[in-house]
Design a binder for these strands. Structure first.
Lengths: 122, 122
DNA sequence: CTGGATCCCTAGTGATACTG
DNA sequence: CAGTATCACTAGGGATCCAG
């Protein structure tokens, strides 16, 4: 049953909030983006080693999504064994500063949040 | 099977990326935070009307989480029928600017992303 | 090496009904 | 009004195996 009122906090496909959450809201995308920013150019296996406990499948899925969105550029070297490198696109680069301010906020406040959560009795 | 290497991109509980994603990475939290920022002080039903298609359950769950994290303050007025008001805490307020830069980025680039995604042939 | 394909399990979400 | 309880469904994610 749809509600009738529509405003900018609705979630049609053009909602900016949904749009940004679709890109960084999942479990791994933000980590991958920040890693690529830091390291610059990485092979599949290198990312896998840096991001502990990500599975090959999820790394593959995540990179595919980021590539489809134009945030990450994928370069295949036609050789055996195959070699594929990933790097941020300009668009991807442009997102990084905003992610970093978020991370900065998190670093500065995670202690407060943790404390609050411990005191919160349900 | 745990991998052995650990660095800052791992996801222990003190990872800032995980920390921030846990707060805004879900489907509704960011929308609620931005709405409370805009409107200032809202009752349960008012939030429900503004955020189209959220269910009572998810609104309840979302607000509970935000309250537990100390981002939202909940005030109960002991009367019949009950009246409960929600507003951002100082901590919640401090997060808003970073969310807005993200939203700004999304607004500015969602068209590019959309185009990229359409061209991406799997 | 870089993935794809498959199976499976759980966490998140939604619908509905109910309550103080 | 402001939730809770219950059920049921799905998408996200992990493990494992297979392939160019």
């Amino acid at each position: 049953m749809k509600k009738e009122i529509e405003n900018k906090y609705t979630e049609p496909s053009d909602c900016p909030v949904r749009n940004v959450l679709d890109r960084i809201g999942d479990k791994w995308s933000m980590l991958v983006l920040l890693l690529l920013e830091e390291k610059g150019l990485l092979r599949f296996n290198e990312i896998d080693k840096h991001i502990v406990s990500i599975s090959q499948k999820m790394l593959s899925v995540t990179l595919k999504g980021l590539e489809a969105d134009g945030l990450v550029k994928r370069t295949i070297y036609p050789q055996v064994p195959p070699k594929v490198e990933y790097e941020l696109t300009e668009l991807g680069q442009s997102l990084i500063p905003h992610l970093n301010t978020l991370v900065g906020w998190a670093k500065a406040n995670m202690q407060k949040i943790e404390t609050s959560r411990l005191q919160y009795q349900n």
